[in-house]
Design a binder for these strands. Structure first.
Lengths: 109, 109
DNA sequence: TGAAGTTTTCTATATATTTGGAATTATGGA
DNA sequence: TCCATAATTCCAAATATATAGAAAACTTCA
């Protein structure tokens, strides 16, 4: 649970969510803090604070590339997060769960 | 994006995450604030504050049932959240994305 | 080794969230 | 209507998070 909250908190902030999504789009090549700082128009220290938060949650990894660092998104973390959030849905009864969602949809429609 | 942050923030808190997961497990029958308050050992006003947060994010729905309310989890919101977080992964190049994850895994192993 | 480029740490301030007791509001049944 | 139950709102204090300038630390390449 601690880990899930860490991931959720990390993504529940505008600057960090934007940075993470840029990194997801970019793929394996990654982006440097300098590039992110420019792209997001955020001062270095502020960005650094947020990247640290994402790294601490395991949502990004880093690798040195020349004189800069390359930050990359770890998308698999997001998948694991989803699994945790919906674990044992409807007590494990898939049919019940499907019905519940359908009923819920009907109510809103 | 606003909506995604709202969902993430709502779940990024111990009491709310616990409540949400209890509701997910319970399925369509739902749980009343009183039951949740007892189960989680949280004072009424505190729980109420958190349920409001979840409801505001669209993660739970309510329905009156006799003298109480039934809170239910809206699991579909979580699915949509995942889609948003990983949208346009690796610029839409699925092969690239798969490779990136595999490489990342190798690095960590 | 030294200088330039990158990124992070330090630090203070501003802002936002969480908590729970007391009071209030809403509901259903007699 | 009136009472008992259920849940929410109000409020103030405690806690946590975000921001960015100045300074420091780490890398690389000449």
């Amino acid at each position: 649970m601690k880990q899930a909250i860490q991931c959720l908190s990390a993504l529940a902030q505008e600057t960090r969510l934007s940075a993470f999504r840029l990194l997801v789009e970019r793929g394996p090549e990654g982006l440097t803090p300098g590039e992110l700082s420019a792209e997001l128009d955020i001062p270095g220290p502020t960005l650094s604070f947020h990247l640290k938060e994402l790294a601490h949650a395991g949502l990004v990894s880093t690798e040195r590339r020349g004189r800069s660092l390359a930050y990359r998104a770890r998308v698999s973390r997001v998948d694991r997060l989803l699994d945790y959030l919906t674990a044992n849905c409807c007590g494990g009864d898939a049919d019940l769960c499907r019905d519940a969602e359908a009923a819920d949809g009907r109510r809103r429609a």
